[in-house]
Write a protein that binds this DNA or RNA. Sequence first.
DNA 1: TTTAATTACTACTTTAAGGTAGTATTAAAG
DNA 2: CTTTAATACTACCTTAAAGTAGTAATTAAA
Lengths: 137, 137
Amino acid sequence: MQLSNTSQYAIRMLAYMADKKDSPLINATELAKVLQIPYKFLTKIMTELVKADLVISMRGREGGYSLSKKASDIKVDDILNVFHDSIQEEQCVLGIGFCNGMCKCALHDQWMEPKLLLQKMFRESSLEDIAGKGCKI
Amino acid sequence: MQLSNTSQYAIRMLAYMADKKDSPLINATELAKVLQIPYKFLTKIMTELVKADLVISMRGREGGYSLSKKASDIKVDDILNVFHDSIQEEQCVLGIGFCNGMCKCALHDQWMEPKLLLQKMFRESSLEDIAGKGCKI
DNA sequence: TTTAATTACTACTTTAAGGTAGTATTAAAG
DNA sequence: CTTTAATACTACCTTAAAGTAGTAATTAAA
Ligand code: SF4
Ligand code: SF4
């Protein structure tokens, strides 16, 4: 019951970048070292974030990565969507069926509440919220 | 963000058994067919449930499985614990660190609420609650 | 006592996520 | 122009979960 490694890495990478919004470009070497994420895996993930238009990359010497928009405009859910790790509308807590409300077990209604809270949290929390709150992640 | 396949299967298997509390023993062949779970995988899972004392098994002809206690006494969380799929006390929503409340990101407090709800749900929901509510899972 | 039907055990295969290696491409610095 | 430092691409390796196969052990019916 937790996010994939890849999503976790992606969130931390982008949160770090949001935190260092003074630097126009941040490179993979720095990110890998500071966040303790394998360099090659990090660049692989970053390339996906570039393709998803959450990040802009500059190749070549003095290159690096930067957020494609304001930190407050990049929601956690946008990141999760890139890696298909977001909570779907009809997703069953047990992963058994898809909730249609027609025929339900006792857990169905109980699941609604935490599910809605999680969805809300992911959709409304931006990188700005996560970063720069005194605690580096 | 969902339970492992193994946990899902285990819950469905036990819920089905709870539902058929009239039959003293239920065998793997029936379970596999009705629940559409691979027979060999099902027996592997069931053996773990036997070792965890949630299920009693009878070998040999006319053998099968039965719940080791009343359906109302087997909680979903008991099943999740067998497969290390329960939500830990200090578990971080992002899977990044372990929440100690000392140094936290903005998601930390928001995570508390759905997490407590999920824990409560898993701990308080029994097989009796899931089974026999008109909807077979 | 033999046979059939069942669970238990051991070992293997498959799949997908996570991770690594090497090379190509790009662009600024010198 | 050449070098250097960066990202991008392709292909592979590793690990753990999921699933499969075959055989042993057990028990009741015949
Ligand atoms: S009724 Fe229960 S098992 Fe079925 S989709 Fe809803 S939560 Fe899942
Ligand atoms: S502060 Fe945020 S990242 Fe750190 S453990 Fe709590 S929820 Fe996770």
